[in-house]
Design a protein around this nucleic acid. Structure first.
Lengths: 186, 186
DNA sequence: GTCTATATGCGGATAGAC
DNA sequence: GTCTATCCGCATATAGAC
C-alpha cells in the first residue's frame, strides 16, 4: 500500500474539535489542524472541499451535542427547575466549548447547517419556556431567554464582568425572567 | 515646509470610526485606514505607537458616546419607561456602531481604557435598574439586564433570529425583567 | 512627518509528482 | 491519498532616505 490513508473526515472533525477547545484565540487553521493529524495541509482537501465545509460539519456536531445536553438537563420535574437546569447546561456548553459555540452562533454557517441538527436545541428551549407561559410555542419568551443566556455567556467569557464577577446576575436574570414568563400565563 | 503634517491623532480616530462603520466584516486594518487618510500605513506610527493604542482610544470614544446616549434616553419620567428608553438606546448604539461595539466589549481593550470613560454607561444602567428594585446599587439586576441586551444585540446582528425575526423577544424580555426587578423591591 | 522598501508572519487554496 | 512547492493575499511593524 504505497499511499495508505492517514486520516478521514471523522478524524479531521475530532481533531478540529480538540484544536478549537485547546487552541489559542484565533480561529481554526488548516495548517495547525493538519499538523495535529500528522499530515500536511493540502491533504485535508481530499476529505473536505474547503474550510467552510469543515466548519459546517463542526456546527452540526455542536448543535447535536448541545441539544442532547439540554434534553438531558430538562429531565427535572418542576417547570422552573427544569428551565434553570437547561439554562445552566446551555452556559456550561458555552463555557467548555467556547470557540465551537462561536462557530454555532455564526449565522452564515448556521444557514448552511442542516435544520435537524439545531432543532433539539430550539425545541427544548421552547418546551421549557412554554411550560411556564402555558403557550407551547411562545417564540417571544424563548427569544428573550436565549438572548439573556447568549449575552451572559459572551460577557462571562470575554471577561467583561471583571474581577468582581457577575455578582449573582445569572440567578437574578433567571429568576426575573421565570417570574415574568409565569405572569404571561395568567 | 518640506514635510507638512497630513494627518493627526484626531483625524486618524475619526477615519477609524468611519472605517469601522462602513468597512467589511474584518477588523480595522492600518493599510485601509491610512488609505482613507491619503497617507501610507507607516505614517500612522508617528501618531499612535501601535494598533492597540488606537483601539484603546476608539473604545474610550465609544464608551463616552454610549454613556451620553444612555443618559439622554433616561430622561423619561416613569422608571419603567426610562429603563426601556435606555435599553432601546443601548441596542440602537450596538446596531449603528456594531464593530465599535465589538471593540468596546473586548475585555483586553476595556482593561486598558480609562475607567471614567465607561463609568457613565454602568452608572446609568445601575440607576435605571435601581429605580425599579429600590436598591441604588443592585449589581445583580444590572448584570442581568446587561446580559440580555448584549445577547439580543449579538443575535440580532449576526442574523441568528433568521428571516422570521425576533418575534417580540425584545419586548417580552424587557417586560419580564422589569416585572422581575419590581418584585425584588417589594 | 512621510515616504519607499522590506522583514516577518499568518492564512486559504492549487498544481502536479508519486 | 499524500506529498512538495508555490501562489496570492492579508496583516503588523521597522529601517532609513528625504
Amino acid at each position: 500500500m504505497p499511499y495508505p490513508a492517514k486520516t478521514s473526515p471523522e478524524a479531521i472533525l475530532g481533531a478540529a474539535l480538540e484544536l478549537l477547545e485547546q487552541g489559542g484565540e484565533d480561529g481554526l487553521s488548516l495548517r495547525a489542524l493538519a499538523g495535529r493529524l500528522g499530515v500536511k495541509a493540502p491533504s485535508l482537501y481530499r476529505h473536505y472541499p474547503d474550510k467552510a465545509a469543515l466548519e459546517v460539519a463542526l456546527v452540526e456536531h455542536g448543535n447535536r451535542r448541545l441539544g442532547e445536553a439540554l434534553v438531558a438537563a430538562s429531565r427535572e420535574g418542576e417547570p422552573e427547575a427544569a428551565l434553570e437546569a437547561a439554562a445552566r447546561a446551555y452556559l456550561e456548553f458555552a463555557r467548555t466549548h467556547p470557540r465551537l459555540y462561536d462557530l454555532m452562533m455564526d449565522a452564515r454557517l448556521s444557514a448552511l447547517a442542516s435544520r435537524e441538527s439545531g432543532k433539539a436545541v430550539w425545541n427544548t428551549v421552547l418546551q421549557r419556556v412554554g411550560a411556564l407561559t402555558r403557550d407551547p410555542d411562545d417564540t417571544a419568551a424563548a427569544v428573550a431567554l436565549w438572548s439573556f443566556l447568549h449575552g451572559y455567556a459572551g460577557l462571562e467569557r470575554s471577561g467583561m464582568f471583571g474581577a468582581s464577577g457577575p455578582k449573582g446576575g445569572l440567578e437574578a436574570g433567571l429568576r426575573a425572567l421565570a417570574a415574568g414568563f409565569k405572569a404571561r400565563a395568567g
